[in-house]
Amino acid sequence: MTIDKNSPIPVYYQLKEDIKNKINIGVWKVGQCIDSERELSENYGVSRMTVRQALGELVQEGILVREKGKGTFVCEPKVKQRDIMSFSEIVKKSGRESETSILEFERIHTPESMQELLPFDEVYKINRLRIVEGEVIANEIIHIPCDYCGYMDMELLKGSFYELLKTFGYVIDHSEAALQAIIMDDSYKKLFNVNEAVPLIKSYSKNLTSDGKLLFIEESIYRSDKYVLEVNIYRREGKIR
């Protein structure tokens, strides 16, 4: 690609997009070292500072990783969540295939710790593993009042839970979540089917409809080396009176 220095599109951005394109078409594969800053500078006819800016943004986006003394390498793609989306939808948008393994699906008395939030006698407990291209990425445990649900079975729960809720007339408007890092122990190694410890992040979320109705509580654990949750934080300006 020739960089158009007369274009209104910044030079570093043109370079960044071409590097991304080369990765997408397989010129540089996952785990492979891309050209050095010097080589990129000479090949594209741009300054080293421009190259550094393009690579810096690609590192921030999780597309590349720098290894001191070795070079810059292509990262394995991560599942990224930015907005309220089902896991199935997120993975599909990334161009990959997902599958779900149901560990538990049962009707239980509402756990005491949830009774204030979910004041119902019984809830469904749904425990699922979310798998992407053969690797367990997440473990999700959902509690939803039985009164809110129509017919469900294990086969239906292998798909998008958000889409299933739509058949009951519910759409999730927003989620209130708390996140924390956790240490992988032997039980998690078994759950995620790994031999070595990998970083994990735990999410506890309350999922609500547009009218503020708490629909279900979800406790999820994700492999944070495979999954990225991007959070946008806004300051709400108070009304001037």
Rank of each mutant, 00 (worst) to 15 (best):
33 C>Q: 15
1 M>L: 12
30 V>P: 01
41 S>Y: 05
235 R>P: 11
96 R>A: 05
173 D>W: 07
219 E>W: 02
207 N>C: 06
133 E>Y: 07
167 T>F: 12
76 E>I: 13
217 I>N: 08
156 L>G: 08
71 G>C: 07
95 G>M: 04
165 L>T: 05
163 E>T: 11
202 K>D: 00
210 S>C: 10
98 S>M: 15
238 G>P: 02
46 V>E: 00
110 T>C: 05
27 V>D: 01
112 E>G: 08
83 D>W: 08
105 F>A: 09
125 K>R: 14
241 R>K: 12
135 E>D: 07
64 L>G: 01
60 Q>F: 01
211 D>I: 09
7 S>C: 03
75 C>V: 13
239 K>A: 07
122 E>F: 06
97 E>H: 10
33 C>R: 14
44 Y>A: 01
190 K>D: 09
25 I>M: 12
36 S>F: 03
208 L>S: 03
177 A>V: 10
170 Y>F: 15
180 Q>H: 05
191 L>E: 04
188 Y>M: 06
129 L>W: 01
215 L>I: 13
96 R>E: 11
192 F>L: 01
157 L>K: 13
193 N>Q: 09
80 K>A: 02
120 F>Y: 14
20 K>E: 15
111 P>R: 14
22 K>H: 13
38 R>G: 04
155 E>V: 11
123 V>W: 02
141 I>W: 04
74 V>T: 10
176 E>V: 14
68 K>L: 14
233 I>A: 09
69 G>D: 09
232 N>I: 12
210 S>A: 12
62 G>N: 03
195 N>T: 03
72 T>K: 08
161 F>L: 15
32 Q>R: 11
61 E>G: 03
183 I>V: 15
93 K>V: 13
22 K>F: 03
32 Q>I: 10
144 I>V: 15
84 I>A: 08
8 P>V: 12
98 S>C: 11
68 K>P: 00
150 G>R: 11
148 Y>G: 04
40 L>E: 00
185 D>S: 01
201 I>N: 00
13 Y>K: 15
118 L>S: 02
58 L>S: 02
73 F>L: 07
154 M>S: 15
112 E>I: 13
196 E>M: 06
146 C>V: 13
229 L>M: 12
67 E>M: 14
64 L>A: 08
167 T>I: 15
46 V>A: 01
27 V>G: 03
106 E>K: 12
237 E>N: 06
57 E>K: 08
87 F>Y: 04
102 I>K: 10
109 H>N: 09
124 Y>L: 06
217 I>S: 03
46 V>D: 00
58 L>C: 04
150 G>T: 12
130 R>Y: 05
166 K>H: 06
226 K>C: 10
238 G>A: 12
57 E>T: 05
78 K>A: 08
37 E>Y: 11
117 L>C: 12
112 E>K: 14
217 I>M: 11
182 I>E: 05
234 Y>R: 08
225 D>M: 09
51 V>W: 00
220 S>T: 13
182 I>H: 02
34 I>H: 02
23 I>C: 03
52 R>N: 05
81 Q>I: 04
143 H>E: 10
108 I>S: 08
103 L>Y: 07
185 D>I: 00
123 V>A: 05
27 V>T: 14
94 S>A: 09
223 R>Y: 05
80 K>Y: 02
22 K>T: 04
3 I>D: 01
207 N>L: 08
101 S>Y: 06
